[in-house]
Each structure stands twice: as C-alpha cells, then as structure tokens.
Computed example of a mutant assay.
Amino acid sequence: MPTTEPQKAPSRNVLGQPLATCGREPTNPTTGFYRDGCCNTGPQDLGLHTICCIVDEPFLAASKALGNDLSTPRPEFGFEGLKPGDRWCVCAARWLQVQQAGAACPVVLEATHEETLQIVPFEILIQYAVIPDQLH
C-alpha cells in the first residue's frame, strides 16, 4: 500500500489569508528562511524570519548598528547583501528592535506570516503597512 506525505496546511499571513510571496529573483534576492520567496517558518527557523519588509537605508543602518548587518555581502552563505528597495523576510524580533529604535521600514502584510503576531502586535505592523502595487 503506497504511503503519501501528509498535506501541509497553507501558510497564512497576519490578515488570515494565504501567505503571498515576499521576494524572489530577478527583481529581489530570493528570500525566506527556506529560500522559497516566502516568509514561511517552521521548527528549524529559530529566528522567526516572518516579516516581509521593504528595506530602506535607515533600517539597514540601524539594523547594522544593533548587530544585524544585512547590507554586507556574505558569499560564504550565498548572501549578496541587501540594498534599499529589496524585499526581505526579516526576523520578527529584529524588526521590532529596529522599530523601537525609530527606524522601522515598510511591511507587506500580505506576505508577513501570521506567526509574527507572537512577537509583534498587529497594531504596530499596521502602522508600517504598504501595498506593493502602490510603490511603483
């Protein structure tokens, strides 16, 4: 008798809808803990890389100053470094740390995983929400 893999429930965003793609090549570096373009999470993702944000210079500078350098390339990890305008799945706690330091960047709620709400209140996320089509 053949066995099948159990069906995985679709990931949901902070709005309770199916999780949208955050970013992937060619316009953005392929993001996500699983490098699938989405802010999916699971037991191996100890940093909870669940907030889809559009990084800007103040966010990158504050993040670096707080010990999380996202702009310097790290070829040994296949990481080219982020530049302003890139979409990236960041750790919920790190995004909140930068927000508390006054340099939060825009968040794409449709692509931000619902697990984020364990760390960052929705009331804070909504203040930084953008609709990607409005950015063009």
Rank of each mutant, 00 (worst) to 15 (best):
A103R: 02
I54Q: 13
G78C: 03
P2T: 10
A129H: 14
I54R: 15
V130Q: 08
G81P: 03
L82K: 02
V14T: 14
L70D: 05
P6H: 09
P18T: 05
E76I: 02
R94D: 09
I126F: 00
I131P: 00
T3N: 09
D133H: 03
Q127M: 00
P18K: 09
Q7P: 01
L135I: 12
T116Y: 09
G42T: 09
T21Y: 01
P106T: 01
Q100W: 01
T50G: 12
D133G: 00
Q97W: 05
E114C: 13
G102T: 10
A101E: 13
P18F: 05
R94N: 11
V108P: 13
V14A: 15
W88Y: 10
H136T: 10
L15I: 07
I124P: 00
Q97N: 11
F77L: 13
G81I: 12
Y128S: 11
S11D: 14
A103P: 00
P2Y: 02
G37M: 00
H49A: 09
A92K: 05
E25K: 11
C39Q: 07
P43V: 12
T27Y: 11
L125E: 08
T116V: 10
E123H: 10
E123C: 03
P132I: 02
E114D: 14
T41F: 03
T4Y: 11
C52K: 07
E76W: 05
A101Q: 14
D45T: 01
H49F: 06
R24A: 13
Q134N: 13
L15W: 08
G102Y: 12
A93D: 11
Q7I: 09
I126A: 11
C38K: 15
N13V: 14
V130F: 02
D133S: 06
C39T: 06
Q7S: 04
V120R: 02
I119N: 01
I51D: 04
P75G: 08
N40A: 12
V120M: 05
E57C: 09
D86Q: 09
L46H: 01
